[in-house]
Amino acid sequence: MLQQKVDQEIKAAMLAKSEARLRGLRAIKAAILLAKSEKGNSEGLTEETEVKVLQKLAKQRKESADIYKAQNRDDLYTIEMEELKVIEEFLPQQLSREEITELIKEVIKSTGASSVKDMGKVMGAANKELAGKADGKTISEVVKQLLS
């Protein structure tokens, strides 16, 4: 699955002497091994769990990059963005904001939500529907906007 693909990519990056790519791939491998060693994952990771691990890594890189950018640390910002680019290669294609909005409108219709009070119900259904295809922050923003 993902681990074998990452291992192959690491070998290719080593041969190509691509330091930035190698850093990103090693971060993915470390996160996968950590997730595998957690309680209940002894048989291996499901595809859904792998996507969650990758999303977490991507989110960490984005947040760090934002902080470094605000502090004018372009050297560290560049490193985070290089790793983020590698991590995003392994994530499913992300939906655009318009596509997310359309799917959430359908979720709101199916749950019968009418106000911000129903946000929890809509968020639960929307997160299941959009798992791996959109980040939680964007989903939350769109739900809040549509229910207001």
Rank of each mutant, 00 (worst) to 15 (best):
residue 46 T to L: 05
residue 14 M to E: 15
residue 48 E to S: 09
residue 36 K to P: 06
residue 78 T to N: 12
residue 88 E to C: 10
residue 14 M to H: 06
residue 56 K to Q: 14
residue 86 V to D: 03
residue 17 K to I: 08
residue 83 E to Q: 11
residue 40 G to R: 03
residue 86 V to Q: 05
residue 62 K to C: 01
residue 16 A to T: 01
residue 32 I to Q: 03
residue 75 D to C: 11
residue 82 E to H: 08
residue 90 F to D: 06
residue 82 E to D: 14
residue 49 T to Y: 00
residue 21 R to K: 13
residue 21 R to P: 00
residue 76 L to W: 07
residue 25 L to D: 02
residue 15 L to C: 00
residue 82 E to L: 03
residue 43 E to R: 04
residue 71 Q to D: 06
residue 22 L to P: 02
residue 68 Y to L: 01
residue 59 K to A: 11
residue 29 K to L: 15
residue 60 Q to L: 12
residue 50 E to R: 07
residue 60 Q to G: 13
residue 91 L to H: 06
residue 65 A to T: 01
residue 28 I to P: 00
residue 83 E to G: 02
residue 27 A to N: 12
residue 46 T to R: 07
residue 48 E to L: 07
residue 57 L to V: 10
residue 82 E to A: 08
residue 12 A to D: 11
residue 73 R to Q: 15
residue 11 K to Y: 02
residue 71 Q to K: 06
residue 43 E to V: 06
residue 82 E to F: 02
residue 16 A to K: 09
residue 90 F to E: 05
residue 92 P to N: 07
residue 26 R to G: 05
residue 45 L to H: 08
residue 11 K to G: 01
residue 68 Y to T: 00
residue 75 D to Y: 09
residue 21 R to C: 02
residue 18 S to T: 08
residue 67 I to V: 12
residue 22 L to S: 04
residue 60 Q to F: 11
residue 62 K to Q: 13
residue 89 E to I: 01
residue 61 R to V: 03
residue 29 K to N: 14
residue 61 R to C: 07
residue 39 K to Y: 07
residue 20 A to W: 03
residue 65 A to I: 00
residue 53 V to E: 03
residue 19 E to Y: 10
residue 41 N to K: 11
residue 88 E to F: 12
residue 75 D to G: 12
residue 59 K to E: 14
residue 37 S to A: 15
residue 37 S to V: 07
residue 15 L to M: 04
residue 88 E to W: 12
residue 70 A to H: 02
residue 48 E to K: 15
residue 92 P to T: 09
residue 59 K to C: 03
residue 49 T to P: 00
residue 66 D to M: 11
residue 15 L to G: 06
residue 92 P to S: 06
residue 35 A to Y: 06
residue 44 G to F: 04
residue 57 L to A: 10
